[in-house]
Computed example of a mutant assay.
Amino acid sequence: MRMFSNMDVTGGFSDFWGYIREPRPHRWAIWGVAIALTWFIFHGVSEYLIPYEKPKAQIIYFENWKSTRSESEIRADWVARAKETTRLNAEKRAEFQRLAKSLGVEYDSTEADRVTRETLGDAVAAAAMKKPEPVKTHSTLAERAARGPRAASTAKPQP
């Protein structure tokens, strides 16, 4: 640590400045090549290694309603959207319940299930929260071990 406490860089800068000022025959050409090469490398990195994509134009659509809509039509639209949102939330909640059950975590959704049944009705709520049947692709190692060894009569002896 002691050797860095008394740093003096003026000698190094003066040597560098003296080297630059000496007249050499190709001094300006070398400087030009050095600057062009540096610019080329930095430009290549900024253009190709760190690309910037300009944002594309977006078209955003929105619903356009008639100005003559009645209050009952507006409320019916609100209710339909609320029911759809509730149905989607019930499906997500059922997925989270299955995940929590597989991880052994308590997940209480009785209040949310009650609201879903009140909003959608019992049949639609039950369909939204229905657990899909798991797809069985192959037997597990435990199932194969429980079946026991294969019969010796089906296996052909190796010579």
Rank of each mutant, 00 (worst) to 15 (best):
A82L: 14
Q58F: 10
T86K: 01
E63A: 06
A94W: 01
A82R: 13
E53A: 09
F62N: 14
F62R: 09
I74P: 01
R98F: 03
E63P: 02
A100S: 13
L99M: 11
T68C: 12
T68H: 09
A90W: 00
E84Q: 07
W65V: 13
E84N: 10
D77A: 12
T68L: 11
W65P: 04
V79A: 10
A94Y: 02
N89Y: 07
K92Q: 11
V79C: 10
E71Y: 04
S67N: 09
T85W: 13
V79K: 10
A100M: 05
Y52N: 08
K56M: 10
S70H: 10
K92A: 09
N89E: 12
W78V: 03
W78E: 01
V79M: 15
I59R: 03
K101P: 00
R93L: 02
T86F: 01
K56P: 05
S70I: 07
A100D: 03
T85H: 13
K92R: 07
N89S: 10
A82E: 14
N64G: 15
E71N: 03
A90S: 03
N89R: 02
K54N: 13
E63Q: 05
T86M: 11
K83M: 11
A80E: 05
T86R: 04
A76F: 15
I74D: 08
W65F: 11
Y52M: 07
R75E: 09
L99H: 05
E71A: 08
K101F: 03
R69E: 05
I74G: 06
T68N: 15
E84L: 14
R93G: 02
R98C: 01
L103P: 00
E53T: 08
W78C: 00
A80D: 09
S102K: 04
K54V: 10
I60R: 04
K101Y: 05
K66M: 09
